[in-house]
Simulated assay, not measured.
Amino acid sequence: MAPPLKPKSPFAERLIEARGDMKRIDAAQALNLTPGRLGSYEQGTAEPSINTLAAISSLYRISIQWLITGEGEMRPTVAAQGMPASQEPAPALDVEMLRSAIASVRRFAQEEAWVDKASPEVWAEMVAEAYRFQVTTSEGEKRRMVAEEKAKTDRMAG
């Protein structure tokens, strides 16, 4: 039996809470991780990749926003049916859109020189906001904004 973990961050505490009664070895196998790697996430000594976060959210049927930030419900209810989300398929997470959101926040952080100063919670909030923006913004609006950004970059370079 795996020793009890002492989480070093709120994220790690939420990760342990989300696993619930599932054995770490079973969860690790389902996530294609070693039990030690999952344990390092649950201790707060390592952080999972975007793909692993998406897999964890899907396996545990939890809100990725709750997992990352602690905001909202761990397992939101489906209001129309009054059923826990754990009984409904988890909404698909667009991993490419999430990667794009992370890249956008990283570029912004580098430009603003706070890339090494922000806490994981601040990073999570920024990425969550960028992801929400990408999900809710129309493709035409995105193309217009990309064109404006390219024109701005071109003006600065030339």
Rank of each mutant, 00 (worst) to 15 (best):
A27L: 00
M97C: 12
M74G: 11
A103N: 14
W66I: 11
I64L: 13
T45N: 10
E71G: 09
D94N: 10
T52P: 02
P35I: 04
D94Q: 07
S40Q: 13
E42R: 02
A101I: 05
Q87G: 13
Y60V: 07
E73G: 07
E96S: 14
A113N: 15
E149H: 07
E149C: 08
Q81R: 14
I50W: 01
E141S: 11
S57D: 08
Q134S: 14
R144L: 15
K117Q: 15
L67W: 06
S104K: 00
G36M: 00
E47I: 03
A109C: 08
P48E: 03
E121M: 14
L93K: 09
I102S: 09
E141T: 12
R61H: 12
I102F: 09
E125D: 11
Y41V: 00
P120T: 09
K150T: 07
A92D: 14
K142Q: 02
V146P: 00
G39A: 04
P84N: 13
A101C: 07
Q81G: 06
M74A: 15
M97D: 08
K150N: 05
V95S: 01
M74N: 02
P89N: 03
L98S: 00
L98E: 00
M145G: 04
W114H: 14
A103Y: 09
K117W: 00
M145L: 15
M156E: 12
A55N: 10
R37W: 01
L33N: 02
T34S: 02
E111F: 06
Q81W: 07
T153H: 09
V135Y: 07
M126D: 06
A147Q: 15
A130G: 04
S63Q: 03
